[in-house]
């Protein structure tokens, strides 16, 4: 089986600052991976590089997605090919209607796959169904994208977009941060609903809590731009208890 995502010895910089420093990671189809690590270690950078953010310059290394060289694709092409990034800080876009963006995103992907555009009725039905799964008020459809949303509402909105787009590879950057207990359960439900043998999910998180609801196949510790340690779900528990210092010490020993 070929890996869904294969990152080899990735080095990146932003401006003159090197961030990712020889990162390698393989995510197979059907798998859920968790990436943990101290603040500033490069987790969001990794997520953004995969999504195609142009401020991050790849200086060496490769990223292969479903056998394709991902680094050659524009962000929108990556999205249409099935990559979804749930932002750590979702952007507020006043004046762009939430439903309008959702529909445009769904249709961009459909066109890419040679499917007809979704009709208005079908779209609304689908959006309402997904929103009810996430415990979101349908009123959010008519607001500006993330405009004036609370922190938790923004995260739910990310998951709504994911649920509508049904990506093959979802990278969720701290989607669990800032969520109340009910919201965390709702978001976990949304993520679990997406799990399937032909999809993969990468969860960037600081807390073991989310992983109680979504059991990861692999857990990685990212520090200073590279993966220091990988293990199964018990690694997350160990990190919660012991912090990151022992990982760093073990790695430098």
């Amino acid at each position: 089986m070929t890996a869904m995502l294969e990152i080899r010895d990735l080095h990146t910089k932003i401006g003159d600052t090197a961030i990712l420093d020889g990162l390698s990671l393989t995510v197979g189809s059907g798998e859920v991976h968790a990436i943990m690590g101290p603040n500033g270690s490069g987790k969001s950078t990794l997520a953004q590089v995969i999504a195609g953010h142009e401020s991050h310059v790849v200086t060496s290394g490769t990223v292969t997605y479903c056998g394709k060289n991902l680094l050659e694709l524009a962000p929108e092409e990556r999205a249409r090919e099935g990559i979804f990034l749930g932002f750590q800080y979702p952007v507020e876009i006043p004046g762009v209607n939430n439903a309008y963006l959702l529909k445009a995103a769904v249709n961009a992907k459909r066109r890419h796959n040679g499917q007809p555009e979704i009709d208005a009725f079908e779209f609304l039905k689908l959006a309402r169904a997904r929103m009810s799964l996430l415990g979101m008020d349908p009123g959010f459809l008519n607001r500006g994208v993330n405009e004036g949303f609370s922190g938790g509402e923004k995260k739910r909105n990310e998951i709504l977009q994911m649920a509508m787009l049904e990506p093959r590879l979802a990278i969720l950057d701290e989607t669990d941060s800032g969520l109340d207990i009910d919201a965390l359960k709702a978001v976990a439900k949304g993520i679990n609903a997406l799990r399937s043998p032909d999809r993969a999910i990468v969860l960037v998180t600081h807390y073991q809590r989310l992983l109680q609801y979504i059991e990861p196949d692999r857990v990685h510790v990212l520090s200073k731009g590279r993966i220091l340690r990988s293990g199964d779900k018990s690694l997350a528990l160990e990190l919660e208890e012991r912090g990151y210092d022992w990982v760093r010490e073990a790695a430098s020993a």
Partner: peptide, 13 residues
């Protein structure tokens, strides 16, 4: 940031 956000949803530049 808004441009990237939209593009990351499949909307072309």
């Amino acid at each position: 940031a808004a441009l990237f956000y939209l593009r990351s949803r499949g909307i072309d530049a």
